[in-house]
Amino acid sequence: MNGGDEQHERAIEPGFEFISPRFEEPKFPMHQVWGYAASLVLTFAALWMTVNRIMSPSVLLGVVLAMAVGQAALQLGVFMHVRESRGPAWHLVPLGLAFAIGIGLVGMSAWIMLFKSGVS
């Protein structure tokens, strides 16, 4: 049971500070309240912009997608405590890789469908 403490004590190498663990346990869940409010604001803003078509559809799609990414970051940071870990938060590395592969997969699929010829 104590074997892990040694690992926990190990210092994080320079350049790898992004995986250093972090815990926050405030007396009132202010972060959660703000996170919830921000996610509501982002949702209604995206909906309002879409219903009123405030810019050209393709640009608007990019904007609302960026807002969705913002909401995802909010959930990960505020609610999922993504930095919490016993030792270095190594799960951040595969998680980032999965998001990169996912964005590549979806983005390139959408991109290749823009070529109307030869694909049906």
Partner: peptide
């Protein structure tokens, strides 16, 4: 967290299919 990583990839495939 590793399970979530695999689920991200599953949903990415479904989003790509939808796109």
């Amino acid at each position: 967290w590793m399970f979530i990583v695999t689920d991200v990839l599953i949903f990415a495939s479904l989003f790509a299919t939808y796109a």
